[in-house]
Structure formats: structure tokens, C-alpha cells
Measured scan of single mutants.
Amino acid sequence: CHSECLGNCSQPDDPTKCVACRNFYLDGRCVETCPPPYYHFQDWRCVNFSFCQDLHHKCKNSRRQGCHQYVIHNNKCIPECPSGYTMNSSNLLCTPCLGPCPKVCHLLEGEKTIDSVTSAQELRGCTVINGSLIINIRGGNNLAAELEANLGLIEEISGYLKIRRSYALVSLSFFRKLRLIRGETLEIGNYSFYALDNQNLRQLWDWSKHNLTITQGKLFFHYNPKLCLSEIHKMEEVSGTKGRQERNDIALKTNGDQASCENELLKFSYIRTSFDKILLRWEPYWPPDFRDLLGFMLFYKEAPYQNVTEFDGQDACGSNSWTVVDIDPPLRSNDPKSQNHPGWLMRGLKPWTQYAIFVKTLVTFSDERRTYGAKSDIIYVQTDATNPSVPLDPISVSNSSSQIILKWKPPSDPNGNITHYLVFWERQAEDSELFELDYCLKGLKLPSRTWSPPFESEDSQKHNQSEYEDSAGECCSCPKTDSQILKELEESSFRKTFEDYLHNVVFVPRKT
């Protein structure tokens, strides 16, 4: 048989008469490798580009789960590009990614509803959504962080984005990388972005840091009482949809009607710091009717980097990364020049730590249904340095008659930039024990000054392991946590139920 035959053949030295091919099969003959313009397919066939392209389009058009959109890589027609490569849609070739590779997620039936953290986790790592997304989240724990972890990498949506009755959302900033909504599939009414009845939605994105392009379709905003109209108009300008909307697409009466839409800028007039305090004062603000001013709200939190936005980490279910302080308005003076500047002394802060701070007014709604208010920009203030805590785990070892090696770990709280350490030492008198000992005694162990690591005695271990207080009263049991108490109650309830079950099964009433 021919060298490319495997198993047997019907005619000697003829690659077209093989029972099976050793390498690849091409047009009725066995070959060692697939010549151009053919590609290896499933490690035994040679196919042309049209064959591989037909497989790709067949799966793409069917949208069946589990099928493969075949691509070409290293002269092979394979189910998908290997790690580190992405497909070129024009020629199906796998090309190296520039940075992290995109991950295209194809949605069944063309859309997916995100109504819980669990459903959001199914899209973790996706960068391109081939379909439409509907966000409908009523509640949950730590929602802002969970949504950002699972949806934060999405850069492109081919269909539309719909935010509907998501009472738990305060902001859409968890879509931190969303840059493009194509609108290839539109919501009824030709809408590519749809926001309806979101009672706590206050911000779409921080438009000073976020760009969003909507290729096709219109915007729809109705019944978002805490979303200011200025935020919607800003989205029109940034996304390129200005002029597409009709009169009733953006409701003037049901958007922002319960919001404090600040239209003035508060400026800080005085800032002073110490290692654990920050004193702030800002310019006074009074609405047209000074009785509408209820006070100020001061927001602050630790910020290692200057990239904080107002609604980071917030949701309507209680999660809030900001510390909020309510401040009463100052006494009002008739003389504008003698107006008191409101302020606040922030206490209990960490030394040498940068804080993000902003302040906003708290006002009631005027009778004319106009909203007044003022808010400052987010500023960054760093507390002063102070003395560091003591170095940890000092170790001293003498390696000769004239040297001592000293080692330690950095302090747990540096409280500033540590530039150097101060080492103090003092000579001590020799131990009298060394002169009084009889060095001729056998088995004498000389006193040693070398360091030995501390260890816990058996008594201390027994005390720590004991669940009861000892007789001397030195140790006591740790208080039980809520989960331990709940577990004990469940076990007790189970024992009672099981005992009742045994009584009912074992003891049967005697027939009379």
C-alpha cells in the first residue's frame, strides 16, 4: 500500500485506493498535508475557505447554543480562536489581540433580562453583547459592586439597553466600559436606550469621564423622579442622539420631579488639616426662599486615587461607600458681607490618608415646582503625618564578641513616609551569675543571650482551647457569634421535631 494509506488498500502504491488515510483526505486521495488554498479540518480532512465560511455563517444565523462559528488559524479551520487571539470578521482569520481579548457573548432569543446578581454573573467577562440587555433589578445585597464585577467589562451592545423598574439602582456607572450601543435591534418605538419607572436612579454616568455613542435609535425617559433633566440632556449631547427624540420621548413632568437638581456650584473657602482632623468651610448658599434650606450634607471617604465619582458603590438597598454628615444651616444675616460661612470639623480620621470630599445642599421643593440647590466639586484632601507606631517583631542576635545583629519589621501604621529608623542602645553591667558559677561542674549549661522565638506554653494553649472559665478566673470563653447562636437554635429545633416524629412513629394507638 501507499505510504499515506492506513489499515489496508485495494490497489498497491495508489493513494486513492486506501481504506483510511494516515494524515489527511483531499478529493478522494490521501495526502501528507493540505496544500494551499485548503485548510486542515478536524485533523483528517482538507477543506477550502468557502466550506469553513459556510459553517461560520450557519452557526451565526441559527443562534443555536453550542454550535461553533468556525475560524481560520495556522492553516486550520477550527471552532474558535485560541487564547490571546480574536477573529477578523472580513476573512475569519485569528489575529493577536492588542491588550485583553474581546469576548463576544451571543444571547438566546436576542435579549437577556438581568433581574438578579445570579443572572448578571452569566455575563461575567463579556466585552461584546450580541443582542439586547434588559435591566430589571428590584433589590439585593452589595448590588453596585456585584454588577460592576460582572457587567463592568461590557464595551458594546449590538441591540438596545433597557432599564425598567430597577428600584435598587442609583447610577449606571457599573457599566464602566460601555462605549457603544449599535441599535441594530430596537425596542418598540425605535428606541435604543429605554429608561422607565426607576424610582431611585439619580445618575446615568459621570459624563466628564465617560463617552457613549448610540449609532441608531432614540432615547426614552419616563417616570424617573430623581433623575434630573440636565442629566438626560447631557446624554443626548454626548451620545449623538440630540435631535432624534420626539416631543413625548422625554417626559418633562415625570423626570426629576422629586430630585434636588443642583444648578449652582458650592466653593470651599477654608481648608485646614491635622493628622486626624480636617476643618472645612464653604461659601454660604440661600435659595430664593431661605426657609427652603434644610441644611447641608457632607460626604467623605478614603480615596487612594483621584478618580472618585459621587455615586460609586451606591445602591438604593443601603450600600453606600460614603460617610454622610448632616449639618444645620448657619444663622442668616441681613448683611451679605457678614454672612457666616458654614463648615464642619471632621474628626477621627487616619493620618497621612487622602480623602475625597464634597458637600451639597438639602432643600425642600418650592411652590413653583422649581428645584434649587448647590453642590461642590469633589475635592481631595490629605491629612498630615504623625509619629508612626512601633516597629514590629524586633530580633537581636550576637554573632561574635563585638557585634549584635538587630532586625525588625516595619510598623503596622507608618502614618507617613518613613525615611529612617533611630536605634538606641545602652551598655549593661555583666551578670554576677557568670562569676559565681563553678565551671568545672559536669552538665553545666552556660547562660545564653542568643534570641529564641517566643512560644506559647501548654497552660496558655489549654486556656485558649477551654470553653469555660478556669477556677483562677484568668480566662473566659469568647462570646458566641450570631451565626453560632442561630445554628444552635436550628439544631435544637431539629432535635425537638425529630423526637416528636419518633414518638408518633414508635407509639401507635392500640386498636379498641
Rank of each mutant, 00 (worst) to 15 (best):
T371N: 10
D206W: 09
E184A: 13
D393V: 15
K277C: 14
W207V: 12
E148T: 09
R179K: 12
L279K: 15
Y355T: 00
Q403K: 15
Q216N: 07
L345G: 02
G240S: 10
S166D: 07
T254R: 07
Y194P: 04
D289F: 00
S321V: 08
D377G: 05
R332Q: 14
I134E: 01
G139V: 15
S192R: 01
P391Q: 01
S274F: 08
N263C: 08
D367V: 10
S132R: 01
Q258V: 05
R124F: 05
V117C: 04
K407V: 05
K267H: 10
E184L: 12
W352F: 08
P287R: 01
I405G: 07
P288H: 08
L178E: 01
L172D: 03
F358G: 13
F220D: 12
S116I: 01
I188S: 06
S260A: 09
H233K: 04
I181R: 01
L201D: 01
I137A: 13
Q121H: 02
K242M: 10
L108P: 11
E184W: 10
F296R: 01
L153Q: 10
Y194W: 11
L294C: 07
Q199K: 14
V363G: 05
S401D: 09
C317S: 04
T353S: 12
T309H: 12
T361V: 01
V363S: 03
V238C: 05
Q258Y: 13
L201C: 04
C126G: 05
K301I: 04
D292Q: 02
D115W: 11
I327K: 14
A374P: 11
V170G: 11
L280M: 15
V397L: 15
S376N: 03
L298A: 03
V363A: 02
N141D: 02
H233R: 02
T113V: 11
G110P: 07
F365A: 14
T273A: 04
Q339D: 11
P388H: 02
I379K: 14
H106M: 11
A120F: 02
T113P: 06
W352A: 08
L331P: 03
Q245L: 12
N334M: 10
N198A: 04
G110T: 07
N340E: 07
G313I: 07
R247D: 06
S402H: 10
S239M: 09
F175Q: 00
I188Y: 11
P287H: 01
R369H: 05
F221N: 04
N198C: 00
L227S: 04
H233P: 08
L266V: 03
K112V: 03
N307V: 10
D367K: 06
L169W: 01
S173W: 09
L133I: 08
I378M: 14
I134S: 09
Y194C: 15
E148I: 13
S260H: 05
G295D: 02
D115A: 14
S158H: 08
L229I: 00
D115K: 15
L227K: 02
K360C: 04
T371V: 07
H233G: 08
A195V: 09
Y305L: 10
V324E: 07
N255Q: 02
V170L: 12
L280I: 12
R176Q: 15
H210T: 14
A259K: 09
W352H: 13
P391I: 04
N248M: 13
T383I: 08
L186H: 15
S389M: 03
F365V: 12
P304N: 13
K162H: 09
C317L: 12
S171F: 14
S269L: 12
A195I: 14
K226P: 01
Y160C: 14
L252R: 08
H341G: 12
K177P: 02
C228V: 03
G348H: 10
E187G: 13
S132Y: 03
A259R: 05
T118A: 09
T185R: 13
H106E: 08
N248Y: 13
T215L: 03
Y270R: 12
N307Q: 14
P330R: 14
E368W: 02
F174M: 07
F220N: 14
L151G: 05
S401P: 10
L161F: 10
E237I: 10
N211R: 07
W207D: 13
D393N: 14
E146M: 12
T371W: 11
T353N: 05
L153C: 14
I271R: 01
Q199H: 04
F193N: 03
N198H: 01
L266Q: 02
T213V: 09
T185W: 11
K242G: 08
L298F: 13
E146Q: 04
S239L: 12
W322L: 03
P388A: 06
K209N: 15
L266P: 03
G373W: 01
S269M: 10
F296D: 04
K267N: 13
N130K: 06
L186W: 10
P330Q: 11
E122R: 15
L212C: 03
S119T: 07
I379Q: 12
H233V: 07
Y223Q: 05
D312R: 10
K360D: 02
L266K: 02
D335L: 08
T361A: 04
V381F: 05
Y285E: 00
L229M: 05
Y167K: 03
R281C: 15
L227R: 00
L169S: 12
G373F: 06
P284R: 03
Y160N: 09
P410S: 15
Y305S: 08
I157L: 05
G140F: 15
M297R: 00
N211A: 09
R244N: 05
S116F: 01
N136H: 09
I378T: 11
P410H: 08
Y305V: 14
K375V: 01
P284K: 03
F290S: 05
S400G: 12
Q354Y: 15
H106F: 03
H341M: 11
D335I: 11
P330W: 04
P351H: 05
A259C: 06
R370W: 06
L107R: 06
V104W: 07
C105L: 03
P394S: 12
T353A: 08
G348T: 02
T113L: 06
L107D: 07
W286N: 05
E246D: 13
S400K: 14
K226L: 03
W344L: 12
V397S: 15
S166K: 00
S132A: 03
V359K: 01
T241C: 05
T215Q: 10
G131T: 01
S158M: 12
W286G: 05
T185P: 13
G243P: 00
L266S: 01
L107K: 03
F220R: 14
D292N: 03
L293Y: 01
L196V: 12
Q339T: 08
I135R: 01
H233C: 12
I250N: 15
N334A: 07
G373C: 00
N211D: 07
A259F: 04
F299V: 06
S376G: 09
Y194R: 14
C126F: 02
S402L: 13
P388T: 10
L362E: 08
V359Y: 03
P304D: 10
S173Q: 09
K277G: 13
K242L: 13
C126L: 01
G318Q: 02
M235L: 15
K112P: 03
Y194K: 15
G373L: 03
P336S: 09
Q339R: 09
T361F: 02
F290N: 01
S401G: 11
D328K: 10
R202K: 10
S208T: 11
K267Y: 15
R291D: 01
W207N: 07
G295W: 12
N334F: 13
P411S: 04
S366R: 01
E236T: 14
G110R: 09
M297T: 02
I232F: 08
T113G: 05
N198R: 02
L201W: 10
A316E: 15
G240Q: 12
P394F: 04
S239E: 02
D315V: 13
K234F: 07
E122C: 11
G217F: 05
R369W: 07
P342R: 04
R164L: 14
